[in-house]
Amino acid sequence: MMIKRRLRRVKDVWKVRQLKSGWAHLFQHYYGKELVSLDIETTSLDVSKAQILSIGAVVIKGNRVLSSEKLSLTLSPPKDLPKDSVKIHKLRRIDLNEGLPVAEAIEQLLKFIGNRPIVGYNIAYDLAVLDRYVRPLFDFGMPNRCVDVMDLYRKKKQLSGSVDCQINLSFEAIAKGLDVPVLGRHTALGDAITTAIIFVRLKSSVGLVK
């Protein structure tokens, strides 16, 4: 999955340069110290069908989660809002009526993240869903490098001697394992902030992140 993304990104870089697109800066190497923790709430767990309901993102710098520098977007509702998903994220059609059109939300998100690396939990899923929206609009996929806290956590556990099959990688289990309070589970911003804290927490464990 990730390898495929890398290959596609090479292609995207080439394309963007050819087109002299205004988004070229997204593909420049990032030299700063910040990252962006990202989470999206969707209607389904199936990448090919999932529709985005809300997007949350927050900046991480050093040991800080800059929750004052955040993005919280609610999108206008998809035509069919599956009942099952309503139960999880508690976003009813009525809550989404005020939302942004998808294209506008995606544009805001890309501007917010810029070329900073992305941090997420099971981030491949979020990126795949986002790509489905980004590609038709701009003709490239999410360009950022990313870090998955799930991988970091697994590595940390392995270093301390756990066997893979014993490691519970659910979001709650990770938060609990690291003694990180879960803030507003199943809201995009809440999960993004929790993920950010998990990342900061894992980062300070030796030897995981350069």
Partner: peptide
């Protein structure tokens, strides 16, 4: 709410 940052200390 909008002004709060979160910091982690060892």
């Amino acid at each position: 709410q909008d002004s709060l940052d979160i910091a982690y200390y060892q």
